[in-house]
Amino acid sequence: MFKRFTLDESVAGQSQVKSSLQRSIRAKILEQLPAIEPYLEDILPKKDKMVLAKVAGHVNVVCSPSAEPLFFNIRDGPYCPTLRLLAKYPLLLPRMCVDDGAIRHVMQGADVMVPGLKSTRAAMDDVRKNAVVGIYGGSKEHPLAVGQALMGTNTIRTVDKGVGIENWHYLSDGLWKCPTLS
């Protein structure tokens, strides 16, 4: 999604959001990521104006006042923390560990295939279909990518091939290379 993202070309506009919209975004994030509650005030302080960047491909990026990207969503889809935020707060998303052999490909934007999740070196939290998940290297501490599970964990265990997690945002993609959008 952010493979060809560049600050100059992909960002259509950034604007401070109205406080009503800000409230609704906060509420949505809180609803989708309940684990964030104790830290929401640190991440998105109520009194500061958040910045919303519109990005090519119907993506909205929620940024801090200093234009640091924090969450993004596609059309009206679920909000997903950026990797830099997830690295700071790994509790936000369920943890899907992939086989070490898959890391290189995921870091080039590949979706995570089912065999990479079923290997002995992989491990999965239980998630439902369409859940937003963090993707980790099997023996690694930091997240490698974030994406959406296209199958629930139960389905993944029963099938042998196919795309398990769609890769939304990965290390060294365009969004990763922009610590701030300014």
Binding site: P34, A35, P90, D126
Partner: peptide, 15 residues
């Protein structure tokens, strides 16, 4: 840490 910090409903026990 993650396990401990998650509120129970988040952790689906479906499996």
């Amino acid at each position: 840490q993650q396990t401990g910090a998650h509120p129970p409903p988040q952790r689906s026990s479906a499996f």
